[in-house]
Design a protein around this nucleic acid. Sequence first.
DNA 1: TAAATTTACTTTGCATGCAAACTAAACTAG
DNA 2: CTAGTTTAGTTTGCATGCAAAGTAAATTTA
Lengths: 158, 158
Amino acid sequence: MNVNVDLGRVMKHQELWLENQICHRLYMASNSVNRAYRPLLDALGLTYPQYVVMMSLWQTDGVMVNELQSTTQIDNGALTLILKKIADKGLISLIPVADDRRKKRVSLTADGKGLQEKAASIPNAIRCRFPSLNDEDSTALKLLLDKLLGDLQGQSDE
Amino acid sequence: MNVNVDLGRVMKHQELWLENQICHRLYMASNSVNRAYRPLLDALGLTYPQYVVMMSLWQTDGVMVNELQSTTQIDNGALTLILKKIADKGLISLIPVADDRRKKRVSLTADGKGLQEKAASIPNAIRCRFPSLNDEDSTALKLLLDKLLGDLQGQSDE
DNA sequence: TAAATTTACTTTGCATGCAAACTAAACTAG
DNA sequence: CTAGTTTAGTTTGCATGCAAAGTAAATTTA
């Protein structure tokens, strides 16, 4: 008695069923998480990608755009606009490097540094939205996502 | 000897570090997966969300738009455009329901049904991109993502 | 050292994702 | 039966994500 024929469906192409796919779950999870962040980030005047950039800078300030790109994995084209926007908000300054005038250094302003205190409560607020995931689950999930990311990163380079 | 101070960073706000976050991994994973699908889906003339809609219809044809929305989790506004586009490609027909003229039934055309054969190889091609994830890992990852999705779904309704 | 190439972004065109406003049809209360 | 409400989709404005073309500066070649 296979559950897959309960509704009289043909047993063909089960790999194409949404319930069987990791990728569709990732798609839904990423969007759901983004929606969960929105109300919290609205209070800071940031979008999620902008928040990711700020987090990266709070951790390591004064980096080149391409370093920020590889850390955050945000698309280059999008990153240009995102940096322009958070620069307009006065959170960062974009300074061309004297050595190599193609490069730009991204540095936090005082306001940008100060925003970290306001953001400090967000990670915990988000974690509380996943009551079903205990610490062990979280660790396991990170590990599995790292495996997946490792696979996908390596391949494009070869 | 804590690895977190290896580079002399202050031990403050570690929750804000990207490496410690599930959400940033989900963001990167979802985008990476989307990029992995692109060359495969280009051959079918579909984008990933369009492919998700087609998969849902291959599994259950002739549903209302709102059923398709809850199955695929694609945004309503986006879904309207996506349905218009795959209808323009001749893969589906959108027929207003006689009972309730607000509703529309989404039905596969012969071409739409035929496309399933061409798509049949995609799930396996994608799975091959994750050599590090064995079957056990895949099952575990699905389970963890389902937990996370369950948490996020329930909350917005309350 | 002049041409070819590479590097570090920027810009452009298209396709979502999302919240919010909007429309039309069906439903409920009085 | 009519006003108010809910439901099913659509439209709109803004912010990415992505591939591809474009730019300017640095590097390598010949």
